Simulated assay, not measured.
Amino acid sequence: MRILIDMDEVMADAIARFLEWYQRDFGITYTEEQLHGTKLQYIVPEAHRPTVRQYAHQRGFFANLPLIANSQEVIRALNDKHEVYIASAAMEFKYSLEEKHDWLDEYFPFIHWKRRIFCGDKSVLKGDVLIDDHAFNLSVFSGRAIMFSATHNMLETGYERLNNWQEARQLFDLDTP
């Protein structure tokens, strides 16, 4: 089976970076619970929104993002049993391509560079399964579309859902040889 896996909010915790940088810049702490069904840029004061929107455009934003819990071990197990590709829309933000490549080298070195797809439009992807946190990516995929839970998509009901990587272990029957 060919399984395509998104990076941000599926493998890498970009929400943590948004919250960290916002606290650094404005001294205000938001929690992930406060982001239920939305993104940080929509709940901060209007005057702060341009700054928040620029975070992902800055060097260092995608570098050393925290891992989503259990992503390494479960993706390794998936990779041992299936054809796994990492598919990230890394073209929108100037520094993300290099930083995402380096991040994968550090945390997922078992995913060969030939199985890393950095694109701008995920409608070109072909595979059996796409695991992604955005409905707009899942809606253009012709295979099995699985939404990985993230704070911003918690109100989305149109897709099969994985809430965490432990559920993926069960869904893909990774505990059996």
Rank of each mutant, 00 (worst) to 15 (best):
P50N: 09
Q41N: 05
R76E: 13
H48F: 03
Q54I: 04
Q58T: 14
H57M: 03
V52G: 03
G37E: 15
A47S: 12
P45D: 15
E33A: 13
F26C: 07
T51K: 15
H57C: 06
P45E: 14
A56W: 10
Y42T: 05
E20Y: 05
L65R: 10
N70K: 01
V44Q: 04
P50D: 02
Q41K: 09
L67R: 09
E20G: 04
H36V: 06
S71D: 03
A69E: 15
Q41M: 13
L19S: 00
L65M: 14
Q34P: 01
R59D: 08
Y55S: 07
Q58P: 06
R76S: 05
D25S: 09
H57N: 13
V44K: 00
S71E: 00
F62V: 03
Q54D: 11
Y42A: 02
F62S: 02
Q58C: 09
A56L: 09
Q54R: 15
E73N: 10
A56Q: 14
F18C: 06
F61K: 07
L67I: 13
G60W: 07
L35G: 04
H36T: 10
N64A: 13
D25K: 13
R76L: 07
A69H: 07
D25H: 05
P50A: 08
I43K: 04
N64M: 14
A69R: 10
T31I: 10
P50H: 09
L35I: 11
Y30G: 01
I28W: 02
T51P: 00
N64I: 03
F18D: 01
E73C: 07
D25N: 07
L67P: 03
E33G: 02
Q34R: 07
Q58W: 04
Q34K: 08
R53S: 12
Q58D: 12
F18W: 05
G27Y: 08
Q72H: 05
Q72W: 09
S71T: 03
A69N: 08
Q41F: 07
G60S: 09
Q72M: 04
L35E: 10
L40E: 02
F61Y: 14
F61V: 10
I68F: 00
E33V: 09
I68K: 01
F61D: 06
E73V: 08
I68W: 00
I75T: 11
L35W: 02
Q34Y: 04
G37I: 01
A63V: 06
V44A: 02
I28T: 15
R24T: 11
L40R: 04
L67W: 02
I28M: 08
